[in-house]
Structure formats: structure tokens, C-alpha cells
């Protein structure tokens, strides 16, 4: 009886090994055409990222170089890391002579950002959104401190 059990054990073991090898061998022979990996630097032109991909915070400007940021600092308060710093100024309306708050500089520290999306959620005017760029390697850390509003840009008409 001992001998029979022993032989059964050996046969079962060999069978289990062959079953595993059949799967591995099957993949080696059958799946050579199906590529699961991406050839990243070469496919840069055709690379399509999902639209919600969180790469960096950007501020979209329209063709008149106008943005929708009112300088309310909601994003600055929502950020857990102190990534965003907004410097505001007062614009004087030429027609009425009233002072109006506007952004002077929208500073974005990319090196502190964890892409948590909380600033985008907090923004009441949808002035900022998550961009698709993800190649952020630079040689100097100071290059990661970005100014999001473009020079000479101003707030879009009608955005309060």
C-alpha cells in the first residue's frame, strides 16, 4: 500500500508540473503576436491618455488670452500641500472707476503636487483643470515652480 501511495504521489506531482508547463508553453507559442507592453518613447505621437488623467494643474486660456480665474483663492485653501499660491491685485475699472480684485500671479508648485484633484473640485468658475502632461523631469527644481496665468492675460468677460 505504501508503494502504491508513493507512486500515486509522484505521478500526481509530475502531472501538476506538466499542467503548469503547458500553460507557460502555450503562452510562449501562441501569444507572440499580442503585445501587452507599450513602446513608450516611440509611441509618444499616438499615445492617448484618458481625459480625466491627472498630470498637472493647468489653466486654460482662450484665443483672446483670457482665463476664468477670479482670484478667490478657493483652490489655495483646498490644497493640502500648499501647492498653489495666488497673488492678487486690484484692477481699476476705467468706465466706473471701481476697484476689482483680479489675479496677478497664479503660482503652482508642481514639485509639491500630489494630483489629489481637490483644487479642481473647489474651483467655482472651472478656471483650472487637470492637464495631460506627465513628463515632468527637469534638471533644476526651480523649473517646477510654474506661473499658470499667461503674461498679459486677463479675466474673461462675464465670469464673476
Amino acid at each position: 500500500m505504501f508503494l502504491i501511495d508513493y507512486i500515486k504521489d509522484v505521478a500526481g506531482g509530475v502531472k501538476s508540473l506538466l499542467t503548469g508547463m503547458r500553460i507557460t508553453g502555450g503562452y510562449a507559442l501562441r501569444h507572440h503576436k499580442e503585445k501587452l507592453t507599450q513602446q513608450y518613447p516611440d509611441n509618444r505621437d499616438t499615445l492617448v491618455l484618458p481625459e480625466r488623467f491627472r498630470g498637472e494643474v493647468i489653466m486654460p486660456h482662450d484665443e483672446n488670452n483670457e482665463h476664468a480665474c477670479t482670484g478667490c483663492t478657493a483652490c489655495e485653501l483646498a490644497c493640502p500641500n500648499g501647492t498653489i499660491k495666488i497673488i492678487t491685485k486690484f484692477d481699476v475699472d476705467e468706465a466706473t472707476g471701481k476697484k476689482k480684485k483680479a489675479i496677478d500671479t497664479f503660482i503652482y508648485h508642481l514639485e509639491l503636487c500630489t494630483m489629489c484633484n481637490l483644487c479642481i473640485e473647489a474651483c467655482p468658475t472651472n478656471a483650472i483643470k487637470m492637464g495631460q502632461g506627465f513628463e515632468h523631469s527637469v534638471y533644476d527644481r526651480s523649473k517646477l515652480i510654474k506661473t499658470l496665468n499667461e503674461p498679459g492675460s486677463k479675466i474673461r468677460e462675464g465670469v464673476e
Binding site: 484618458p50 480625466r52 488623467f53 491627472r54 494630483m115 489629489c116 481637490l118 473640485e121
Partner: peptide, 20 residues
Amino acid sequence: EESCGTRLTMNYMVPGGVMA
């Protein structure tokens, strides 16, 4: 990645529901 925007450390759930 499609629904939450990130692959590993998603901050998708917010108090009261989900972000999007």
C-alpha cells in the same frame, strides 16, 4: 485611470459620495 484619473493613489471618494 479612466474613471478616477490616477492608477494607484486615487483620491476618488469624498465625504458625501464620489468625486465624479
